[in-house]
Nucleic acid binder design. Structure first.
Lengths: 217, 217
DNA sequence: GCATATTTGTCCGTATGTATA
DNA sequence: CTATACATACGGACAAATATG
């Protein structure tokens, strides 16, 4: 669609770096991002950093307050609720119309295997990332650049929310097997059954996330 | 969701102005947007204009090429196809779960009436805008800030595509009555029937747009 | 294919306004 | 209420990439 994921270009590079810091938890939600300090830290000019802020603001990872600057976005329960509403609307139809020999199926399988490997090391953060990749691959089944783009932003916001919760085992481990079951149904040519599993996954996952958020300090 | 629709702020204002020029057809698809000329024309500095470019690039209205600058995005038949795929996935579920006394229903009615008024003047461009507003209101039924945000960008891209086609009567007029029918089904508490009408609307509308594109000079 | 003009990418310095301690 | 820190916006500079003759 667009040539905007220009991997060369200092602004895009720095946007990627800052995005990683935010969803990786190195920068906490609500934290202020002062232009002067951060631009020096990144080794770029304030003008360049401001362009970075515009990109990440559009991604929902930053909040821009008038004359006050940029802050890391702070997910709330309303955020979680909205995200899961979107996930239902996007993932379920994408999976339902999924074709067993689509390229994205290989991505789904790779994601499940990566999650299983990380489980062996009890690395729940990596398990969480692999599970996200699984759902990104589901969306890729729809072959829609715009939907893919949209969902990438949703995923980034989810990772930000997870970062707020730490990465406890019970928030990620149970879904490895469920994802595998979804994948198998799809490969068997039963996408409707796969979609049913996905639907129940989304329900339990949302509920668990919401209670985790409610019990936050 | 975010404080990013900051109406104060020169960048947001200028982004709005430039967005209007693009979707209004004053700037043609593929046209180059030189920083020097445009910044002087808008009365802003090059740095500020670059921030504007980042915003509109994220909206899909601009394409950024490395070391070559910004160009107005050029919709293709693939663009149209993708946009309609997204519209199906978003609008139909939104309408299906629509509640007859939702705020957005009033917006839908207002949009139909605006379209009828403009039809009396044979002002097909305004009819087209009102029809778009009708569908934006459908999405608002879902009460999802992220979905609303996403759909706004889709609408902007559609208007860009329509601009390419001029605004012939038969691309807009037939849908006024259809939109009214959809609205009435929803108000009668039959959202499923409304969604069926919407589905067939999307099919015919997409087909007509695609053929119009295929016959483009 | 070359030399030149143009344009982008990035930086710096600075003036002004706004919020906060 | 003043002082201070910060964001906003501008203009100029220059290297590097690109377009032009």
């Amino acid at each position: 669609m667009a040539t905007n994921d220009n991997s060369s270009g200092l602004v895009e590079q720095m946007a990627g770096a800052l995005r990683l810091r935010i969803i990786g938890g190195a920068l906490l939600p609500g934290q202020r991002l002062p232009e002067a300090r951060l631009s020096e830290e990144l080794g770029i000019s304030r003008n360049t950093l401001r362009e970075v802020f515009r990109l990440l603001g559009r991604d929902g990872l930053l909040r821009h307050e008038p004359n006050r600057g940029a802050f890391v976005a702070t997910p709330t329960m309303a955020t979680i609720h909205d995200i899961y509403r979107v996930r239902r609307m996007v993932e379920i139809p994408a999976l339902k119309q999924g074709w067993p020999r689509h390229q994205a199926v290989a991505r789904m399988r790779a994601a499940v295997e990566a999650a299983e490997l990380a489980r062996a090391d009890a690395d729940w953060r990596t398990v969480g990332s692999a599970n996200m990749e699984f759902h990104t691959a589901i969306v890729a089944l729809a072959d829609s650049p715009r939907l893919t783009d949209f969902f990438d932003r949703i995923v980034a916001e989810m990772r930000l929310a997870f970062g707020l919760l730490g990465s406890p085992e019970d928030l990620h481990e149970p879904y490895i097997a469920l994802n595998l079951a979804i994948l198998q149904r799809l490969e068997e040519g039963a996408p409707a059954e796969a979609a049913d599993l996905l639907d129940s996954y989304l329900s339990t996952s949302e509920r668990k996330l919401m209670t985790a958020f409610a019990n936050l300090p």
